[in-house]
């Protein structure tokens, strides 16, 4: 089982140096996790390091395929507020 980086990653490099098993690597269009190397940080850290520093909600999936940082969990912006504001901007 492994964490996964998906397309909303902004390539900020924050996770790469933290990975204890060097499973994260630079790639285009975004960074990737080598599933064969990822240990979910077990034995090294209480929390998976990539998901603990990642600033982008939804960019990292946990081993169950769910967003490790779901919408609103990092920015504090309620998802419904975000949707409302985005719709407003689109309508302009």
């Amino acid at each position: 089982m492994a964490y996964e980086i998906v397309e909303s990653c902004v390539n900020c490099w924050a996770c790469e140096p933290l990975c204890p098993s060097k499973a994260i690597y630079e790639a285009r269009p975004h960074f990737l996790v080598d599933a064969g190397k990822c240990t979910e940080c077990e034995g090294d850290h209480a929390d998976a390091q990539c998901m603990s520093i990642c600033p982008i909600e939804g960019a990292i999936l946990n081993p169950f395929g769910e967003a490790a940082n779901p919408p609103g969990s990092l920015t504090g912006i309620p998802p419904e507020r975000m949707a409302e504001v985005m719709a407003e901007i689109q309508a302009r």
Partner: peptide, 16 residues
């Protein structure tokens, strides 16, 4: 220096 170790409410990390 793209990485950050904190989040500020005036910053959006999608910097481009």
């Amino acid at each position: 220096a793209p990485a950050c170790n904190i989040q500020c409410h005036y910053c959006n990390r999608k910097y481009d």
